[in-house]
């Protein structure tokens, strides 16, 4: 089954009097449970494509379907709820809430969902925090954690709602190679245990060995796809 179908997606950004064509017509199908890597040089359109798939940006042309639902024309609040329930995000700069500790950061999306039983929240959060290896730091705030630990928290937060897809835009760009390695291993492991689709972008060829499928972008166009 396909979890994502992208058809003819273009994205233009106005830049002064001209426009930048960030995406020039992308067709892409992602299968459920994939661990997909988008590669390409800086400026090739990776972030733009992930934003459009993640419903935080809209294409200039083309359609995006998530689980067979056309999402480009939905009203804002529906899209917000769709992000909450179906998509998890991992950001390059980790982006945790500084005033909340690890547990509170991870449970944040569940609290936004309303009506989640407290006991369920607690067990789910504990399970995930243990899963990313931070059970001893569960009461610490982001400022007390290392970069790698923060990204682990972000991964746990992205997974906590059991989303269909997790999108990660250069999740290891701000980490050293050793930490990057362990983060990717963790993502891969969770991809298999949670059966969640992962799509992540990178411009680091080292990262590619973890992916089970790869697409390559150049100047807003798909130039290659393949399975490792």
């Amino acid at each position: 089954m396909n979890v994502i179908e992208v058809k003819g997606v273009k994205k233009d950004y106005p830049l002064g009097k001209t426009t930048v064509q960030a995406l020039k017509g992308i067709d892409l199908v992602v299968e459920t449970g994939a661990f997909l890597s988008i590669v390409g040089p800086s400026g090739s359109g990776k972030t733009t494509l992930l934003n459009i798939i993640g419903c935080i940006d809209t294409p200039t042309a083309g359609t995006v379907k998530i689980q067979d639902e056309e999402i480009t024309a939905l009203p804002e609040q529906t899209i917000t709820d769709l992000r909450l329930h179906k998509i998890g995000f991992i950001f390059q700069n980790f982006n945790l809430i500084p005033v909340l500790n690890v547990r509170e950061n991870v449970e944040f999306p569940l609290l936004l969902m309303k009506n989640q039983p407290r006991a369920l929240i607690d067990s789910r959060v504990k399970e995930l925090v243990r899963g990313v290896g931070l059970i001893d730091q569960i009461e610490q705030r982001p400022a007390e954690l290392s970069g790698g630990q923060r990204q682990r928290v972000a991964i746990a937060r992205a997974l906590v709602t059991n989303p269909e897809i997790i999108l990660a835009d250069e999740p290891t760009a701000n980490l050293d190679s050793e930490t990057s390695e362990s983060i990717l291993q963790l993502m891969r492991q969770l991809n298999q245990s949670e059966k969640t689709t992962f799509i992540f972008s990178t411009h680091d060829p080292e990262v590619l060995k973890h992916a089970n499928s790869i697409i390559q972008l150049r100047d807003g166009l798909l130039v290659g796809a393949g399975v490792v």
Binding site: R83, L84, F89, F91, N95, I97, F108, P109, T161
Partner: peptide, 16 residues
């Protein structure tokens, strides 16, 4: 901005 936008991205409504 970055923190608030992140909240929006992961599913918080404007009202929140």
């Amino acid at each position: 901005v970055s923190e608030l936008a992140m909240m929006r991205a992961i599913g918080a409504r404007k009202g929140f």
